[in-house]
């Protein structure tokens, strides 16, 4: 039982990471990661939606006929996203304004429907929620890494605007790494996001190769898992 959770965590955080391996949800991933705070906000919203949708899909799987499962999953996900959007609008207004149109885009984040279809609809609630948590965390970590790289290179700061997410005390979190007279535009604009994303994926593959070299004889564990390859 414990091994199952370990495996789920490993899959979500590294081996089958929705951000850098499955490459699902590229649209919000690339659009929003211009600062760490934006990345964190969208990452947490996605994490929340992913856990809720996975849990719900897993609970209702008995009553959902195979033929109409996709529209029902979409309905469930859309409902959760709308709720998150309303709640953020009400309680974290500043962040809601800066994430703008990207919140509704969580609906189109294929990582969510991918997990609902590939895992949650076939597994018990506990495992499904845990899978949602781990996949969400994996996605969140990629968002934050990319956000940090782009914010440092683009603006020379870290945690700029943290007060929008965490309240006024957080404005002290802002770190000025170094100072520019003009910003490094490439890092802030979408092409920069693509380039740095490429570097992150390359680094991940490099690490994987290194690990494979060190333990050449270990056999791949045989896990049944559907790779979802929707475009996002």
């Amino acid at each position: 039982m414990n091994n199952e959770y370990k495996e789920l965590a490993w899959q979500g955080l590294w081996k089958n990471n929705p951000g850098i391996v499955q490459l699902l949800g590229l649209c919000p991933l690339l659009a929003v990661t211009s600062t760490v705070v934006n990345a964190l906000g969208l990452g947490l919203a996605t994490l929340f939606v992913l856990i809720c949708s996975n849990a719900t899909v897993s609970v209702v799987q008995k009553w959902v006929p195979k033929e109409i499962r996709i529209p029902i999953f979409v309905l469930i996900i859309a409902a959760f996203v709308t709720c998150v959007q309303l709640l953020m609008n009400a309680f974290t207004f500043g962040l809601y304004e800066s994430l703008g149109i990207f919140l509704p885009l969580i609906v189109t984040n294929c990582a969510i429907i991918g997990r609902a279809e590939a895992y949650a609809s076939k597994n018990p609630v506990k495992q499904a929620s845990f899978d949602g948590l781990m996949m969400g965390l994996g996605f969140l970590l990629v968002l934050i890494t990319l956000g940090a790289i782009r914010e440092i290179l683009g603006q020379g700061t870290l945690f700029d605007g943290a007060e929008l997410l965490l309240g006024t005390w957080a404005s002290n979190l802002r770190i000025e790494v170094f100072h520019f007279d003009s910003q490094f535009l490439l890092a802030i604009l979408p092409p920069g996001a693509f380039i740095f994303m490429g570097f992150i994926i390359a680094a991940k593959n490099k690490i994987d190769d290194k690990m494979a070299e060190q333990q050449p004889k270990q056999k791949e564990a045989n896990i049944e898992r559907v790779r979802v390859n929707f475009d996002s």
């Binding site: 209702v60 009553w63 959902v64 006929p65 033929e67 109409i68 529209p71 029902i72 309905l75 469930i76 859309a78 409902a79 709308t82 709720c83 309303l86 709640l87 609008n89 009400a90 309680f91």
Partner: peptide, 29 residues
């Protein structure tokens, strides 16, 4: 018919949840 009913049921439930959240957040928004 059965599938249509199930789909309708889910639509009603989801709309109710969204409507409820809208109701409790609208003043604050």
């Amino acid at each position: 018919e059965k599938n249509a009913k199930i789909l309708a049921l889910f639509a009603v439930i989801c709309t109710t949840v969204v409507g409820f959240v809208h109701f409790i957040t609208k003043d604050r928004i």
